[in-house]
């Protein structure tokens, strides 16, 4: 599992983004987190070379949601051989935008006193779910009707053992809000909303049938290409 706090948003474990063999001894692992409305790139920098590393700086290529460092990369002391440091880099979403394929691909350049290195990573889209993503109920109903059926995408969330209340709480900790809940013929229907940092709203219907560990998630969004990523976020959140 991850290192997310029970009531906070989910944070995946760090993975290696840049192996030492490709960066003259600099190994970078990382993950993304969202805390108190702020997005962070959590980095571990490990010096596997035989010389000291200094003068670190980081830059992002333009990306789908305008993610950019909100401050310089703070590595205050030289990184000595075999030393690892943890750095939390604050990000904002006001950088240059260019739709990437896959959508959440981020190309990063990092430099030190030795050279400049490049790597790509994927950020989980739930980092971009904002705190004020609970849609007004009347607007939800109107928007649900207004978005054409062709824009509705259905997914199965398999082998989930949470009840409707646990699902609601877990999703709310990750800025997915339940706008309404109905029980029809024994099954729970949760109507939910979330908003991305770029203002795109996603409406969801999550259907939980008694005795069925597979839930049906229906997503409606004016930008249907985000649906697959939002489904991925539901799966990650509900299974961790």
């Amino acid at each position: 599992g991850g290192v997310g706090m029970p009531t906070g948003s989910y944070v995946a474990p760090k993975s290696v983004w840049l192996p030492a063999a490709k960066a003259k001894g600099l190994e970078i692992s990382g993950t993304f987190s969202r805390r108190m409305g702020h997005i962070y790139m959590e980095l571990s920098l490990m010096n596997k070379a035989m010389q000291v590393m200094t003068d670190f700086a980081i830059q992002f290529n333009r990306n789908s949601f305008g993610l950019a460092p909100a401050a310089p990369l703070q590595v205050n002391a030289p990184l000595t051989p075999n030393q690892t440091i943890e750095v939390s880099l604050p990000l904002n979403t006001v950088g240059p935008v260019m739709k990437m394929d896959p959508l959440s691909n981020l190309q990063v350049a990092i430099k030190n006193n030795i050279d400049v290195f490049y790597f790509s990573c994927l950020y989980p889209i739930n980092m971009l779910f904002v705190e004020d993503g609970k849609m007004d109920r009347q607007i939800f109903l109107a928007t649900w009707k207004d978005i054409p059926n062709e824009n509705e995408v259905q997914f199965q969330i398999k082998e989930c053992h949470l009840n409707a209340d646990a699902v609601t709480n877990k999703l709310q900790s990750n800025n997915i809000y339940t706008v309404a809940k109905r029980n029809v013929e024994g099954q729970d229907m949760l109507y939910q909303s979330l908003k991305l940092t770029n203002g795109i709203w996603v409406l969801a219907e999550l259907r939980i049938q008694p005795g069925n560990i597979n839930y049906t998630l229906s997503l409606k969004c004016r930008a249907p290409e985000v649906a697959q990523h939002v489904f991925g976020a539901y799966e990650t959140i509900l299974k961790n």
Binding site: R137, Q138, L141, W144, A180, R182, V184, E185, Q187, M189, Y191, E205
Partner: peptide, 20 residues
Amino acid sequence: EMDDDLDEAFSRLAQARTNP
């Protein structure tokens, strides 16, 4: 009263989705 209307509208939506 508007709240009641919205409650009713969500019930109708859930019903329609279950039995289209």
